[in-house]
Design a protein around this nucleic acid. Structure first.
Lengths: 165, 165
DNA sequence: ACAATATTGAGAATCGATTGCATCCGTAGA
DNA sequence: TCTACGGATGCAATCGATTCTCAATATTGT
């Protein structure tokens, strides 16, 4: 469907910021984008849309079910287009890559467990955290050289790096 | 084990704030506490510990695996004592009650799926959101009277209430 | 008890996100 | 096509949660 029509169907005027933001999610090869991500991507196209507008538009798109809002462990919120089937996520704690997966066995168990608890299920969120295939391989290559000393707990505690670039 | 010893084993000095905070988690009947929750509970015992200290101590306890940090959908971070078996959560979107559950079938599927993706699993987070048994019952009782008009999408968008009291 | 060192508390600073407001613009109707 | 209305935008101010800075204080090994 045409983007402007899709917007009007949700009761939203077809403005430039909204058109461009939706286009971004439909065409970007990165599926999960934060408000800042969107802001910077639009800047690259010489579109200086205010951050406040981006936050507002993302919120409206989420309300209209055009986008899905996701919140991974401690990280800022990201959005993805709501066009594919339901799925959960594997997040690499090293390179931040996000992979998607679906498992009907897990879905069924969730439904069953909710029922057993008298719980009326509205939504759920399952995320696996760890090292993706590439990062496992890379870490393995490096570790042979400098395996000798691991920083101990106290030292690691002091070195929490910011997550975003 | 004695609390002071438990702290020293983690390389932490047995200070009053730390003792009291750990005690709180061991004895409070509410399992999941935010930093603010801890702050207010300590105030009730006439202990005015600075918020910064509480955030620091909670972080250290999480690093030391004494506490587990949890982050539910959009909400602030909460902590729970890491003494019981691993479990996941059902969160009531109406009364904020948190129930815990465990399902080995789900756990196994997660392990399998990670392996299939070449993913080295470190951690995972599964939360179900919906209405708990009590809130389902309460809503049901009220709905017969005022079922007539539901606020429409735009109106609901405008009424995002803050989550904490 | 003392010195060395870790910890605390208060407030300022940061971070992501939201909001108020004056202005601007998309769109339905003339 | 033109116009006016109401929604949409940008900016700056603000928010709540968390982290940082730094001087003052408390804990621990000796």
């Amino acid at each position: 469907m045409e983007i402007p029509q899709q917007l009007r169907d949700s009761g939203l005027k077809a403005t430039l910021p909204r058109l461009k933001i939706l286009e971004l999610f439909q065409h970007s090869n990165v599926r999960h984008l934060s408000a800042e991500d969107v802001y910077r991507l639009l800047l690259k196209e010489n579109l200086d849309v205010g951050l406040a507008t981006i936050y507002r538009v993302l919120m409206q798109f989420a309300e209209a079910k055009i986008l899905l809002r996701r919140q991974f462990e401690g990280d800022r919120a990201v959005f993805e287009i709501n066009a594919t089937e339901h799925h959960d996520h594997m997040v690499c704690v090293e390179c931040d890559k996000v992979e998607e997966f679906f498992d009907s066995a897990i879905e069924e168990r969730q439904t069953l467990l909710a029922k057993q608890h008298g719980f009326k299920l509205r939504d759920h969120s399952l995320s696996l955290y760890g090292l993706c295939k590439d990062c496992v391989a890379r870490d393995h290559a490096q570790s042979s050289a400098s395996r000798l000393q691991q920083p101990h707990l106290a030292a690691r505690m002091m070195s929490k790096l910011p997550k975003h670039k």
